[in-house]
Design a protein around this nucleic acid. Sequence first.
DNA 1: TACGTTTCTGCAAGTGATTGCAGAAGACAT
DNA 2: ATGTCTTCTGCAATCACTTGCAGAAACGTA
Lengths: 145, 145
Amino acid sequence: MSCESSTAQTLKASGHRPTPQRLMILSAVRHADGHVTASEILDRVKRSYPYIDVSTVYRTLGVLKSMRVVSETDMGGIEATYEWIDDARHHHLICRHCEGLTQLDDNHVNRLAEEIMAEFGFQSEMDHLAIFGLCNRCRSGEAES
Amino acid sequence: MSCESSTAQTLKASGHRPTPQRLMILSAVRHADGHVTASEILDRVKRSYPYIDVSTVYRTLGVLKSMRVVSETDMGGIEATYEWIDDARHHHLICRHCEGLTQLDDNHVNRLAEEIMAEFGFQSEMDHLAIFGLCNRCRSGEAES
DNA sequence: TACGTTTCTGCAAGTGATTGCAGAAGACAT
DNA sequence: ATGTCTTCTGCAATCACTTGCAGAAACGTA
């Protein structure tokens, strides 16, 4: 069973309909490597179905987000970025000075989630964090810049 | 020295000008208790200076954000909320089902920041997080809702 | 296959938030 | 004070994203 058809099943099970538009959007996010913006998804889908509308893309991303199949992240750019959530969950450290990116493994964040669960019984959904700050290099050199 | 004039000094020191508009916006955020939206700030400032523009409010909030004097948070509503950063730093757990709010003390988040600092030398600026998920009550009862 | 119900789509108009620009105002030296 | 340089403001246009709506497509049932 391909990855798309299994997601189609998940869609159906949650009362949503696996329409052609949704499957195309799904496929565009699934097969893009890494982060994609909504307009990139739109352009990609338009190649095979030119009538697709931006609102459909955003609405579908909303559905996939609520099913926790894709994550939405504000990476500090103009547009939000979307990413397929796979097993190797990760996060990002973004330097607000040099804009450099560092990958952060989930285990640190997961520990925070476990603490919150233990104290409040609250199940955090931190699928893809963007943590802003100053990287090692810019931290020491910020004064004279 | 009042809280406003001390911030005015900070503005000046970082090359920004403490204009009347900025001081009014500053005061509006400072003396609002808790989270305020940009339009609430705009309305408030308009009472004493009707010519103020939305863009000035957003630009000033941008400056205050970069100085880490105020925090910007997406609380899941329509507009972003802004808050004066004081000593008692805190965060929020927001249930995506019942929309209930729980306050989260900074020490949990701070521990994550310290781990990140130890491993990467990256200084995180997590001033006011909004963590979405399912609260204790909705977690157990979500199936039959 | 045909029918009734529900959900979904594309369009257009709306929202919150950002940006380019020309004039206004603050800072600083003379 | 006066002039110069820089930053800031208000306006208008624009951007990313959302929403209301009427027709279209998907689903369940027979």
